[in-house]
Structures are given as structure tokens and as C-alpha cells.
Simulated scan of single mutants.
Amino acid sequence: MSDYEEDHLVPLELGGAPRDPGNLWPEPHYGTKTASTKDGTETKLKNAVCNGTISLSAARSAIKNNWTTALQVTWHRLTSSEVATPDRPVIDSKRSAARM
């Protein structure tokens, strides 16, 4: 097994370009920030987009700028009256109602 795998910086599940050389990078299999760590971040961002917690643009920008801190964008939209935990993000009720 190789020490790295070629991966998409902006994942396909967030609309990343599959063959753009600028969207491809070597992702390590070992260390503290690994391929499996980033895969979990990608899934959580996709879920936040689908739930209406954040916009697709915000998710793409966050993961492109620094994937190791990208999940922080899911918590910036909270107001002081909303309560959230990492396991239960708060969904914007206005945005959710508009989609129904």
C-alpha cells in the first residue's frame, strides 16, 4: 500500500471537479490528518449542505481553504438562542421551511 492516495481537494460529493489538476492532491495514509480523517469531514460537510445548515458555496470554500478546520463553518451560523452539539447541528428553520 502506498503512503499517499490521489484525492480531490473539493470532494466530488460537494461538486469538486473530477479531473482538474488543481483539485487533485496527494493525501497521506499516515499521521494525524489522513485520508480517512478527510473522508469524514467531507461527509459531514455534505450532510450539513443537504440539511440546509450551510450553503454549498460555504462548504466548498471551507474545505478548499483548510480541510482540517472546515467543519467550523457549520457552527458559524448559530445564534445565541440556538443550542447545538457536534452530533446534532442546528438547522435553519426558515431555510428548511422554504424547501418543504
Rank of each mutant, 00 (worst) to 15 (best):
G22F: 01
L14M: 04
W67R: 02
V83Y: 03
Y30D: 06
R19M: 08
P86G: 04
R95D: 11
P86R: 01
S36K: 07
N51K: 11
S80T: 06
T69C: 03
N23W: 08
Y4H: 15
E5A: 15
Q72S: 09
A58G: 09
R77C: 02
L9E: 07
E27P: 00
V83I: 09
D7I: 07
E6W: 15
R88A: 15
C50E: 14
A58R: 05
T43G: 02
T41Y: 13
E42C: 12
M1D: 14
R60W: 02
S61I: 03
D92M: 06
A70R: 01
T68K: 09
R77W: 01
S93P: 15
T85C: 05
D39Q: 14
C50F: 01
S55C: 08
H29Q: 01
A35Y: 13
C50V: 10
L9N: 11
N23E: 05
T53N: 10
P26K: 00
R99W: 15
L45H: 01
D92L: 04
A35C: 13
T34A: 01
T41G: 01
T32P: 01
T43H: 03
T69A: 11
N23T: 08
P21F: 02
S80Q: 05
E6A: 14
R19P: 00
T69E: 13
L9D: 06
E42G: 04
T68R: 12
I91P: 00
T74S: 05
D92G: 09
L24Y: 02
G31R: 00
W67V: 07
Y4Q: 12
R88L: 11
D3F: 12
K44V: 12
T79L: 01
S2Q: 14
S55A: 11
N23M: 06
L12D: 14
T85L: 07
L56E: 13
H8K: 14
A35R: 13
G40F: 01
P86T: 06
T37S: 05
S55W: 02
R60H: 01
N66H: 10
D20V: 00
T74K: 08
T41W: 00
G22L: 09
K44A: 15
S93D: 10
D20L: 01
T34F: 00
P11L: 04
P28E: 03
L14A: 06
T69L: 09
K64E: 13
T32L: 06
R99F: 12
G22Y: 01
A98M: 14
E27N: 07
P11E: 05
K64G: 08
L24N: 00
S55L: 05
K44M: 13
